[in-house]
Structures are given as structure tokens and as C-alpha cells.
């Protein structure tokens, strides 16, 4: 009995000792983690600081300005939501948003579709030198500054530019027109410039994605008698889900937030036909000196981009699970 109680006591003492050491270890661990965390915080501080100062703060200020009527110089007056209401009621402002969505067709769908097709074709002869040349040539537009691309294309699309010269050579002279100055063709013409610029990026991303697809999948498909078309739709395309989402995200943002190409090629003309929100924000802020309205449109544009791009991301996560 006594012996037993001694055993128990000893046992308890052991337990207590054990608890004591675990506690100490835990505390030490926590301290180490804290120390490490402090170090991590210190290391990320410069980046966080830069992010707060150059990203968060400007966004916050834009939101704030959007509630004021302000010319950028003199004292401002509180405007409440009137700048946002004006966007809904001004056909010029809402028209620019419609134009931006039309551009998605050219800036996103065309480059992604063409990119898929081209990448698939290049994959067919991936090991040859031709593939390297093709890849380089097709990627080149991506490294040309947008302004330079805009100037180059506005020459090519002008009345006596290359595009019209080709039409005339082919005996299609009656189709020749000042593409960027014609009400019917100005927006598609701007779209073509964007498609040309963004195509290379999409192709390269998709091509990179294709290299990580397991070759045995293709072998299996071929054994089952699948042709190249079936192979593409059953193996290539599903495996590229994430890459396609990345391409769409990048290009849709480029379409909705477009500025440089339009500014260089048409400045929004003819007759506001190619006016986009980016350009409108610039005109509002720097020509009409309505910093409040410009900020409101900027906030709306940011929300629109998020509203379109965020649902896309869940598409890519579903693909993973």
C-alpha cells in the first residue's frame, strides 16, 4: 500500500518533471518562433513599407478624392456620391466602359485562341531549331514598348499604309480605308494592335505549360486511337487550365485598363468611338481638371477589373482539386 503510494507519488513527480520540461521546451520554442518571426518581419518591412506607400496609399487617396469635387489646386468641396452617379448618367463615361469590354474580345480571346493553336503546332516540332526561331519571332512584339507598337501600327493602318497597299495589290482597293479614322473599324483596328502585342506572351506561357504534360498521356491516347484534334481537346487543353486562366487574367486586365495603345493610335477618336476608361480618366484629370470624377471612374474601373478577374481565379483552383 505504502509502496504503491510511493510509486504513485514517484509517478506523479515524474509526470510533473516531464510536464515541466515540455513546458520549458514549448516556451523556448515559442520564443524561438517569435525571434524568427521578428526577423521575418524585419526582413519584409522594406517591401511592406514600399507596398503601403506606393500601392495602398494611392488607392486609398483615389477612393478619398472620388468623394470630392476638386480641380487639383484650389480647395475641394465634399461631393458625396455625386461623382459615381454622374458615371451612370453620362453616356460618354458608360460608353467608354462598353468599349473596354469590346476590347476584351481582341485583347484576350484572340491571343489566347491563337496562342493555343500556335503553341500546339510548335510543340509538334519542339526539338527542332525551327521551334526556337518561331518562338522568338512570335514573342518579339511583347518586348516592343506599347507606344512604339502604337506608332508603328498607326502608320501601317493609315490611308497609304501597308495594310491598304496590300489590299490594293490584291485588287481589293475598295476595302482600303483609313482604319483608325473610320467609325466602323477604329475599335477593331485598335483591338488588332492589342492582339498582336499580347499574342506572344500567351503563346509562350501556354508552350511552357505544355512541356510539363506527361508524354505517356499522349502515348496512351494514341494507343486508344485518338487523332491530333482529340488529343488536343482531351489532354492538352484540360492540362493547360491554369495557364489559360493566367493568360486570360493578364490580357483581360490589359483590355480593361488599356491606355497607351489607344492614346497613341486614336486618342479616343473618331467621335469617342475608341474612348476607353483609362483615357477618359486622363482627360478628366488633366484636361477637365475634375480630379474627383477621374478618381471615381478609376475606382469603378478597379472594381470592374476585380469583378471580372476574381471569378476566373476560382476556375483555376477547381481544376487543381
Amino acid at each position: 500500500m505504502q509502496k504503491r503510494s510511493t510509486t504513485i507519488r514517484r509517478h506523479r513527480e515524474d509526470e510533473a518533471a516531464a510536464r515541466f520540461t515540455t513546458d520549458r521546451r514549448r516556451r523556448a520554442l515559442r520564443a524561438r518562433r517569435l525571434r524568427r518571426g521578428g526577423l521575418a518581419l524585419a526582413l519584409t518591412a522594406p517591401a511592406v513599407l514600399a507596398y503601403v506607400v506606393f500601392v495602398i496609399r494611392p488607392i486609398a487617396m483615389t477612393v478619398q478624392y472620388s468623394f470630392y469635387k476638386w480641380d487639383g489646386i484650389t480647395p475641394s468641396t465634399w461631393a458625396g456620391l455625386s461623382n459615381y452617379v454622374a458615371i451612370l448618367h453620362n453616356p460618354e463615361l458608360s460608353g467608354s466602359i462598353v468599349n473596354a469590354f469590346t476590347l476584351i474580345l481582341f485583347f484576350s480571346f484572340v491571343p489566347v485562341a491563337l496562342g493555343l493553336f500556335t503553341a500546339n503546332a510548335i510543340r509538334g516540332f519542339a526539338t527542332s531549331r525551327l521551334a526556337v526561331v518561331a518562338r522568338t519571332v512570335l514573342f518579339l512584339p511583347q518586348i516592343i514598348p506599347l507606344v512604339a507598337a502604337g506608332i508603328m501600327w498607326s502608320w501601317q493602318l493609315s490611308t497609304d499604309g501597308v495594310v491598304n497597299q496590300v489590299f490594293r495589290l490584291l485588287g481589293l482597293g475598295r476595302l482600303a480605308r483609313p482604319w483608325l479614322g473610320d467609325f466602323g473599324t477604329a475599335l477593331p483596328a485598335v483591338g488588332v494592335i492589342g492582339a498582336w502585342v499580347l499574342f506572344g506572351l500567351c503563346m509562350l506561357l501556354l508552350l511552357a505549360g505544355m512541356t510539363k504534360i506527361d508524354p505517356s498521356l499522349y502515348e496512351a491516347a494514341r494507343v486508344d486511337g485518338a487523332g491530333p484534334v482529340r488529343e488536343f481537346f482531351s489532354i492538352t487543353l484540360p492540362s493547360l487550365r491554369q495557364e489559360v486562366v493566367v493568360c486570360l487574367t493578364v490580357t483581360i486586365i490589359a483590355a480593361l485598363a488599356s491606355f497607351d495603345i489607344v492614346y497613341i493610335a486614336t486618342q479616343g477618336g473618331p467621335g469617342n468611338r475608341t474612348l476607353v476608361p483609362g483615357l477618359e480618366i486622363y482627360y478628366l484629370a488633366f484636361f477637365q481638371r475634375q480630379v474627383g470624377s477621374a478618381s471615381a471612374l478609376a475606382v469603378v474601373l478597379m472594381l470592374l477589373v476585380l469583378a471580372v478577374v476574381l471569378p476566373l481565379q476560382s476556375l483555376s483552383r477547381e481544376g487543381k482539386s
Partner: peptide, 21 residues
């Protein structure tokens, strides 16, 4: 960040009463 946000909270260009122009 909070400090910066607070600093940005005064009306742009000063309020109409206290002209800085």
C-alpha cells in the same frame, strides 16, 4: 499604414474655408 491613411484623410487641397492657394 494607419498613420499614412490618417494623414491622407484631410480634404485634398485644404477645405474651402482655409484656402491655401
Amino acid at each position: 499604414g494607419t498613420a499614412l491613411a490618417l494623414a491622407a484623410c484631410s480634404a485634398p487641397g485644404g477645405t474651402a474655408g482655409t484656402s491655401t492657394a
